Computed example of a mutant assay.
Amino acid sequence: MFALFKWFGNKRLIILMFGFILFIALMGLTLGNREKMTWPEKFLKDSVSWIQGMVYKPARVIAGFFEDMHRLTVLYEENRALKVTLTRYAKDTARLNDLESQNKRLKDELGFTERQQQSNQYKYRIAEVYASSPDPYNNTVTINLGEKDGIKENMAVISIEGLIGRINRVSPFYSNVQLLTDIDDRANNSKAIAATVKNKDNESFGIIESYDREKGLLVMNKIPKTDQMVVGDVVITSGLGQLFPRGIEIGTIVEKTEGEFGITHTAYVKPFASFNHLREVFVVEVPELR
């Protein structure tokens, strides 16, 4: 039994020595500058390369898929950020344009009130147009001033261009403005305007009683036949009717014809004010005489 174990031990030693010799031989064959590889090296290299290719291709596809997914995620986030930025920019641009437009209007209106205050003692209450009537035969707008602000019926309302109408209804916080385009001598709720010509206050007189919708002109009647007003004259309120204060510009005479029975004349007046897209207006407050 001991001899058998001894034989197996010697056999293991022999195999180990043979393997070592084979390893040295292979090392000798592979070291050094050789132009050609041996067939074991070629076989081993081809086998390893084939295995690497089989492993690398699926790994490359999977890695490329996740890389593409990452790029899509980055592009999506960048696109969303750009959309948010563009939306904010558009809103800021629109707001800036609106502020610039409002600033210009307010500057013009401030200049208007300063000029008016130099010529008379009226007070001008600026109001924002809150709503307008969609009915073409009920030309009224609503402003955000009312009884709480000291607004009363029949106060004159103007824009920076000229007279636009009068207050015809008042609530605690809002008021309705009847526009000049709603003047009608046949309506009970309409008020005529006593008018004269600028720089000819003591020479000219007439009454604006209606609005010609077809011509888009105010109709001024009861002009004395001897009146010297002519086309191109500026028509202003005369203050004689005790309704509209004196000196508010209304428009320009564009036509003058003979009136009824040839006793008086009729003049057609083109309003200075635009009645569309009103934004801010002024309510004219006349100081009470003491």
Rank of each mutant, 00 (worst) to 15 (best):
N79V: 13
K83D: 10
K83L: 11
V84P: 03
V84N: 14
T85P: 07
L86T: 11
L86A: 12
R88V: 06
Y89V: 00
A90L: 06
K91T: 13
T93L: 15
T93Y: 06
A94S: 09
A94F: 06
A94D: 10
R95E: 04
R95D: 12
D98S: 12
D98V: 10
E100I: 11
S101I: 02
S101R: 12
N103Y: 09
R105D: 01
R105K: 12
L106E: 13
K107R: 07
K107S: 02
D108N: 13
D108H: 09
L110W: 07
L110A: 14
G111D: 11
G111W: 02
T113I: 05
E114T: 08
E114Y: 01
R115Y: 05
Q117T: 01
S119H: 12
N120F: 00
K123Q: 15
Y124Q: 00
R125T: 06
I126E: 08
E128N: 10
V129H: 08
Y130K: 06
Y130G: 01
Y130H: 12
P134I: 03
P134N: 11
D135Y: 02
D135I: 05
P136T: 07
P136K: 07
N138S: 01
N138T: 11
T140E: 10
V141I: 02
N144D: 07
L145I: 03
G146P: 03
E147V: 02
E147S: 15
E147D: 15
E147G: 13
K148P: 10
D149A: 09
D149W: 05
D149N: 12
D149C: 08
G150Y: 00
I151R: 04
